[in-house]
């Protein structure tokens, strides 16, 4: 599996550099010191974006909007000095960090967002397999199923996936669990 890709956006180069420093070495990081640069570095491979809200020229809110408009499903955490108010409800972010932040804030946030992404993918796959299994079970005699290797393989994969989904979910804290659920209503 390719390493997770994190895009770090802050108009102060040293701040972006520090966030990059906090992240584990196995992550691939991209650093942008402005909204325009962030959009240039954005593509479908990016898993998580750490996004400053208040930036000159192109603001974080605009960057977020354009990321969503372009259809990227990366998880986005706003990192900002501004307290969230009701206006943020219209923004499509996945997490919200208020500055000042420290090493743990940054690491935990990115790691949670990655878990949520995995969780969402796994859940989707699990439901697809479970459905396939139910369809086959409904139309084939049990004796035939027991003898079929392809069916046995399907059962094993479904069970393994379910165990992984549960494990991932348990590992998330309450807030991230809520975030995980929120992945589903809009079809992610």
């Amino acid at each position: 599996m390719s390493p997770p890709i994190v895009l770090v956006v802050d108009d102060q180069p040293n701040v972006a550099e520090a966030y990059e420093l906090f992240l584990p070495d196995e992550y691939e990081t991209r650093v942008a010191t402005g909204g325009e640069a962030a959009l240039e570095l954005m593509d479908a491979d990016v898993d998580v974006v750490l996004l400053d809200r208040r930036m000159p020229q192109v603001t974080g809110d605009e960057v977020l909007e354009r990321i969503r408009d372009a259809g990227y499903d990366a998880r986005v955490a706003m990192v900002t000095a501004v307290d969230p108010d009701l206006d943020v409800l219209e923004l499509g972010f996945d997490d919200y960090l208020v500055k000042p932040v420290d090493r743990d804030d940054v690491r935990d946030t990115v790691s949670d967002l990655l878990s949520i992404a995995t969780y969402a993918d796994d859940v989707q796959e699990y439901f697809a397999l479970a459905k396939k299994r139910a369809t086959v079970e409904g139309s084939t005699p049990t004796r035939d199923l027991a003898a079929d290797d392809r069916y046995q393989d399907l059962v094993e994969r479904t069970e393994a996936l379910k165990a992984r989904v549960d494990e991932t979910f348990e590992a998330l804290d309450d807030e991230a669990q809520t975030g995980a659920f929120n992945q589903f209503p809009d079809g992610n």
Binding site: Q12, N14, V15, E17, A81, V98, P100, D102
Partner: peptide, 9 residues
């Protein structure tokens, strides 16, 4: 908060 965050970084 912004400069404070920058200083910590």
């Amino acid at each position: 908060r912004d400069p404070l965050n920058a200083a910590s970084m």
